[in-house]
């Protein structure tokens, strides 16, 4: 086991940083905000850490924290600037924000290293540190996926007007999602640059935007489990697809299309549906008994309950 982990250190590290990036996109998405700004946060976190470590001799962990906080601050400002946008318009604004940052990286001269970027960023961060950070983030996210807070978040996404009417401060929720998303995105970039020891403009381009979004949609939007499933799937896909050789990209495209058409809820949604159906099937005989005993409306109530808890 340890040997396997050691051999696949890079892939495991990639999975974890991609997972953090996906979480950074997922948090606003759960509030109905389609934001690609996470790529920009990732760039700030990555470049910030690289610059602090290689050019200013700042210690590894201080650099990581400072760069992540910087990303959170930029995210907060961005949240105010684009407050009145919605849907795909907001998505476009955040895409351009991220790609503008990538243009800054290309034109940043000796600070960002231009097209070559910054290399030789060697700190002491291991995949165990990264894994520990991921666990902390998961715990935090789980907290938002339970109870009252979770229902408020869902209401904000599904129908923001209704949510407002019910007394949920939609604007405040959405605005708060920016610094959180910014910090986690920045953290993802900071840890990624430590894993790869290098960062270049081409590693924070539109391709990464597309990858991160695909991961969430394929994995599932509603829960961190979806983000993790998606990250595992896409980071390890090239390993799995070795046998298709040159047709890897075609298989990738086809899989994404199938997922988009057939499983709108993502892999996790599919799993939940299956679990739901199975529990319904298991409960059906009992329900039938109940139906016989009591009125039809009671039975329906039981059925829907058992479906949810099962």
């Amino acid at each position: 086991m340890m040997g396997w982990i050691d051999q696949n250190e890079f892939l495991i590290g990639s999975t974890l940083t991609v997972f953090l990036l996906a979480i950074s996109i997922q948090i606003p998405l759960r509030l109905g905000v389609i934001s690609f700004a996470s790529i920009g946060y990732y760039a700030i976190g990555g470049y910030g850490t690289a610059i602090l470590m290689t050019q200013h001799g700042v210690s590894t962990w201080t650099s990581v924290v400072v760069a992540s906080v910087a990303a959170a601050v930029v995210a907060t400002l961005l949240g105010f600037i684009i407050a009145r946008l919605n849907g795909l318009y907001l998505a476009m604004a955040t895409v351009s924000f991220s790609l503008l940052l990538s243009a800054v990286a290309v034109n940043g001269g000796s600070i960002t290293g231009g097209a070559i970027g910054i290399f030789g960023v060697i700190g002491g961060i291991t995949i165990w540190h990264t894994a520990a950070i991921a666990v902390v983030i998961i715990i935090f996210v789980t907290f938002t996926e339970r109870g009252k807070l979770s229902r408020r978040i869902d209401a904000t996404r599904v129908d923001s007007q209704l949510a407002s009417a019910m007394g949920i401060n939609v604007t405040a929720y959405r605005r708060l999602s920016f610094p959180i998303s910014g910090f986690i995105g920045g953290l993802a970039g900071a840890l990624a640059v430590n894993l790869k020891t290098a960062i270049a403009p081409e590693s924070v381009n539109f391709t990464l935007v597309v990858l991160a979004l695909t991961i969430i949609i394929i994995g599932g939007q509603a829960s961190w489990v979806g983000a993790l499933a998606g990250s595992l799937f896409f980071v390890w896909l090239p390993e799995i697809l070795v046998f298709v050789g040159e047709w890897e990209e075609v298989v990738y495209g086809t899989l994404v299309v199938f997922a988009a058409v057939l499983i709108p809820g993502g892999v996790v949604g599919l799993f939940n549906d299956w679990r739901h159906r199975r529990s319904v099937a298991r409960e059906r005989p009992k329900v039938a008994l109940l139906e016989a005993a009591a009125g039809e409306s009671d039975a329906e109530l039981t059925q829907s309950r058992s479906g949810k808890d099962g």
């Binding site: 050691d6 051999q7 696949n8 250190e9 890079f10 892939l11 990639s14 070559i116 970027g117 290399f119 790869k196 020891t197 290098a198 270049a200 081409e202 590693s203 390993e239």
Partner: peptide, 27 residues
């Protein structure tokens, strides 16, 4: 980088012929 890291950690691999991409090679 992932493939390289795996090969580098395999003691049975005596030499590696590196990737032709600069962006990969700096990693």
């Amino acid at each position: 980088a992932a493939q390289f890291s795996k090969a580098a950690k395999d003691p049975d691999v005596p030499v590696i012929m590196g990737p032709i991409l600069s962006s990969a090679a700096v990693v």
